[in-house]
Design a protein around this nucleic acid. Structure first.
Lengths: 255, 255
DNA sequence: CGGTCAGTTGAACCTGATCAAGTCAGGTGG
DNA sequence: CCACCTGACTTGATCAGGTTCAACTGACCG
C-alpha cells in the first residue's frame, strides 16, 4: 500500500495539517450534499468522518483502476473525472465530479476500483474511510438513507449518460453536455462558466473526436447560441440550445 | 395507486398464494446473490423480507418511469430490461436484469423511478419493500454491506455499458454483447443460450439499428464464430469472438 | 525563441443509418 | 386444415454524419 500515492500524499497531508487539522464537516459549504446536514451536528462524531484532505493538481490521479477500495472521496473544490482505462486508447471519461459529489463509490462492489479518478483542475478532496461511513450509517438511519441516495443517484447518472451516446447526433450531444455541465457547475444553472475539461476529455465522455467537438462548438458560436473565449463559455440562448439538444434529430425544422 | 397494476397483480398475487405463501428466501436458488447467504438464516426474519411475488408476462411492465419508489425487485426467473423513456423514440434499453439481479435500485435517489422495467420473457420477481430492507440492513452489518455492494455493482455496470457505445464499432458491440450476455445468462459463460431480447432491444441497448444488428449477426455466422437458429444461439469460437470485440478497431489483422 | 500542448480547419473516406422490399414463423379465425 | 395477418427479421441500395489524416495557429512555459 501507499507505494504509488506516497509521494503525492506527503504534500497533501502536510497541507491538511497546515490547514489546522480542520477535518470537521461542520463548516463545509457542501454539508447536506455529501452528508445529510441534520445528522452531522447531532450524531456521532462528524469531525472524525474525514480522515484527511488531499490537494490534487491538474492531471494528478486520485485513484487508478484496480486500486484497493478503502474510502470514498468528497469533492470540496475543483473538478475531477472518472476514467475507465479501457484496454484500448487513452481511457474513456465516464463522468465528471463536481464539488459536493462523492467519487469512488463504484469500488464497493469488488473491493477494487473499476474506474480511475483524476483531477481535471486543481482540486481538494475529503478522504472518507468507508468503514467509518458504514459504521456511522448503521447507527444513524438518516445517514444510511443518505448514503443509499448517493449510491442510487450514481446509478441514475450512468443511465442518463447512455442516452446521448446511444441516440443523439454530435451537435445534440455537445448541446446537452453544455446544459448539464452548466447546471452542475454552479448548481443552479448559471449561463456563464468555465469549461475546464479539454475538448478531448469532453469528446471522450461524449463518444466524439476532439475535432468534431471543436467544429460543433464553432457552429454553436456562429449561431449565436453560445459565446466562447478560451476556456470560459457563456450560454446565450438557453431555450434554443435546449431545443437543439432535444430535437427529434436532423434539422431544426424539416418534416 | 394500483390503477395500472391492479388487473395484473390480481393473477400474480393469486399465484403467490397458490404457491403456498412461500415468500421465504431460504429455498431460493439465488440466495447469496440477491441477499447475503450467511445472514439470512441467522438474522431477523428473512421470510418477511419479500412481501409478495409477481408473475410477469413477456412485454408486461413491472415499473414505469416516474413511478413512486417503494420497493426493489429481485428477479427469480426470466429476463427483464431497464428502459429510459427518453422524450424521443421508443425508449432506450439501459440494461438487462437476469435471475438474481435486483431491479429498481435507481429509484432510491429521488423516491421515483427514473427508468422503467419491463419483462423481456415471462418472469417472476420478488417484491422487496425497501424500508424493510433498510431496517434489516441497519440491524445486520452483513446485509448492509451486501446492499452497498449491489448498489455499487449497478454503478459499475453503468460505466461498463458506456464503453461499447463510446468506442466500439457495430461488430465489436454485438460481439461484446454476446459474450457478456452469455456470461450473465448462465453465470459461468455457457456457449449455448437463448437470445431472448429482440434485435430491436439489443440494438437499442447498443446504440444500433435493428438492421445493423441483423447484418452483424449474419456476418458472425458466416465467419463461423457463432451458430444461430431462431432465438437460440451458440458461440463457436469464444476466443475469436473475444478478440474481435477487443480489437483495436478496423480489420482483424492489418497494420 | 524554440518547444509543446490544445485547438482549428480542410478534404477524402467509411461506417452505420435510412428507405424500401421482401421472407418467414406463429397465431387466429373460418 | 388452410388462409390470412401480424410481428420479427432479412437483405439491398443509397446517403450522410462523423472519423481520419494532415497541416496549421496560437498560448503558454521554460
Amino acid at each position: 500500500m501507499g507505494t504509488r500515492s506516497a509521494p503525492l500524499n506527503a504534500a497533501a497531508v502536510a497541507a491538511a495539517r497546515a490547514a489546522g487539522e480542520g477535518l470537521s464537516c461542520l463548516g463545509c459549504p457542501h454539508l447536506g450534499v455529501c452528508m445529510p446536514a441534520q445528522a452531522v451536528p447531532r450524531t456521532g462524531r462528524p469531525d472524525r468522518l474525514v480522515s484527511r484532505r488531499l490537494l490534487l493538481q491538474r492531471r494528478e490521479p486520485l485513484l487508478s483502476t484496480g486500486d484497493r477500495f478503502t474510502a470514498v472521496y468528497g469533492v470540496r473544490r475543483g473538478l475531477l473525472k472518472g476514467v475507465l482505462a479501457a484496454d484500448v486508447a487513452g481511457g474513456l471519461v465516464t463522468g465528471f465530479f463536481f464539488p459536493g459529489d462523492l467519487a469512488g463509490l463504484d469500488g464497493i462492489a469488488r473491493d477494487r476500483h473499476p474506474t480511475g479518478v483524476l483531477a481535471v483542475t486543481d482540486a481538494e478532496v475529503c478522504v472518507i474511510p468507508f468503514d467509518r461511513l458504514e459504521a456511522w450509517a448503521s447507527r444513524a438511519p438518516a445517514v444510511q438513507r443518505h448514503l443509499h441516495r448517493l449510491l442510487s443517484r450514481e446509478i441514475g447518472r450512468g443511465c442518463m449518460a447512455l442516452l446521448p451516446l446511444a441516440r443523439l447526433t454530435a451537435a445534440q450531444r455537445v448541446a446537452d453536455f453544455l446544459l448539464r455541465f452548466a447546471a452542475a457547475q454552479s448548481h443552479g444553472s448559471a449561463s456563464d462558466f468555465v469549461l475546464a475539461p479539454t475538448l478531448e476529455e469532453m469528446g471522450s465522455h461524449l463518444g466524439l473526436k476532439m475535432e468534431t467537438v471543436s467544429r460543433v462548438l464553432a457552429q454553436l458560436v456562429s449561431q449565436r447560441l453560445i459565446a466562447r473565449e478560451r476556456r470560459s463559455l457563456r450560454i446565450l440562448e438557453f431555450a434554443d440550445l435546449d431545443r437543439l439538444a432535444r430535437a427529434q434529430s436532423a434539422g431544426p425544422e424539416a418534416r
